[in-house]
Nucleic acid binder design. Structure first.
Lengths: 266, 266
DNA sequence: GCGTTCTTGTCCATATTATGGACAAGACCG
DNA sequence: CGGTCTTGTCCATAATATGGACAAGAACGC
């Protein structure tokens, strides 16, 4: 249990285990590929996003292809998550605790608000949309689907999650995502500004959503130990979310977020 | 394109790419863990099944834990697939071509036969149950669930899939699974015997199923290029599958397997 | 056609990295 | 309280993954 007094920096309790650089790198590549969904990601983009050298990424990706973990689309040359990943995932058949806990809240908020609702979790330095409810109002924001993965900070859900964690942790994550923010036309400073604003407001908000002409409002959901695990988001065409309605929607979201937090404990 | 005349053995066209031993090993570990489902697998079992040394497996597994790919159950000390794997799998939201193609056949055969039906795919050296239909007969074999993963050769589905491929390939796979067969109380010779029998019969069969007192019948499903991709299985208590009924059930399964093969082409 | 600038793919000497034998420590049993 | 399980750790060393440099193909402009 006692570490041999490491001459190196006296960091944290959990010094990252060494002896598996290649495995960590392969996983970093996989997470970038996952963000590309079915269409996949070009090699050069993986190189940019991971900061690895091209020969290294190339080697990793092609070994993963041989293993069935990655696929290459012949037409486009892009790389994507292969079908062996869902196969491995079948080992964990049951839906997560959060998904079960959030279900009634999503249902309730969805009918009450009428616009599209998203449940988004944090996974590493990314946000991942894990559930979506389409409202009754005839104009709906449908461009974000279950499975959508983005760097933490580019969506209102990401901003909300960052706002709910210690400022230092948030800064670290945004800095780690620096290279990937360019693709979303934002940068570290802008994101951190939005995070601060969200912290003050009590919820995350984006006047200009990722989709043109939309606006989003997100509340965070914390685990019992106080760390944000997910966010609940409403997206709608901007005109439908004026200051008055924003307040109403935010209140509903905040109420349901607290209910979900209670349900997770159970 | 032209390989520099390798002084080594003039093997196949596709010499396995090198430079990623660690990644391949990590994946081998993951596949073993996947077979353990939610309960997971003790470290020693992973060591046995993969043939790697214990320090190596230990290191790999713990790096994967840090990365969120693997979880360790504190009570039992067993290792299992972590929740980041389903998260990565969400990148591929759509159900597979096979699952869609097989759906009507499973429906039809299930009502016609009345016993539990399984759809099982080959993934590497394993079989993986990807769909199940419960029949109407009051006694049903339910012990095999969607997500169940076993070495090719220990289930009737595995035997069927092996029977449908060139004998040499089948031998290679069974040999690769040698260490894992012990856990199912069988061995290379026994499995190869069953495969030969299945090849003669035209379908896979196990008088003594994995579950005590059950009997299983499986037909293989080939992809357009002639390689077996999946198997369709009926399991029932042994008394319900006498020689007469075995023949009937096998005919239905064979008929539906051919229909699925056509549907995959589409 | 031919340079320019993208992209992806490959080679191989080298230093960094993963390896596994040996040891340790805890759990369970009789 | 020795015997037989298990999991976890150390570290010298051999083997492995690395990345600079080069190549080849694709897309575009003129």
């Amino acid at each position: 249990m006692d570490k041999t007094a490491s001459a190196k920096s006296t960091r944290r309790i959990t010094e990252p285990r060494q002896g598996a650089q290649a495995i960590r790198r392969a996983l970093a590549v996989l997470r970038i590929l996952a963000a590309g969904r079915e269409d996949g990601v070009p090699l050069a983009e993986v190189v940019r996003a991971t900061g690895l050298t091209r020969p290294t990424v190339h080697r990793i990706v092609h070994v993963l292809i041989e293993e069935g973990i990655v696929e290459r689309h012949d037409k486009t040359g892009r790389y994507a998550i292969g079908n062996q990943v869902p196969e491995l995932a079948l080992a964990r058949a049951r839906p997560s605790r959060l998904l079960i806990a959030a279900n009634p809240s999503l249902q309730r908020a969805s009918t009450e608000i009428g616009d599209t609702l998203f449940l988004t979790v944090r996974t590493g330095n990314d946000t991942l949309c894990v559930d979506r409810r389409i409202g009754v109002y005839p104009i709906q924001v449908l461009s974000i689907e279950v499975g959508a993965r983005r760097p933490l900070g580019v969506s209102s859900a990401g901003v909300a999650i960052l706002a709910a964690m210690p400022a230092q942790d948030a800064r670290k994550i945004v800095a780690a995502n620096e290279k990937r923010l360019e693709a979303y036309r934002t940068d570290v400073a802008t994101v951190l500004g939005q995070v601060t604003a969200a912290r003050r407001l009590g919820y995350g908000m984006r006047e200009i959503g990722l989709v043109q002409g939309t606006k989003s409002i997100s509340t965070w959901i914390k685990t019992p130990d106080g760390r944000p695990a997910a966010a609940m988001t409403v997206s709608a065409v901007r005109t439908r979310l004026g200051p008055r309605r924003e307040q109403e929607v935010a209140e509903i979201l905040l109420r349901e977020a607290r209910i979900i937090e209670q349900a997770i404990r159970g």
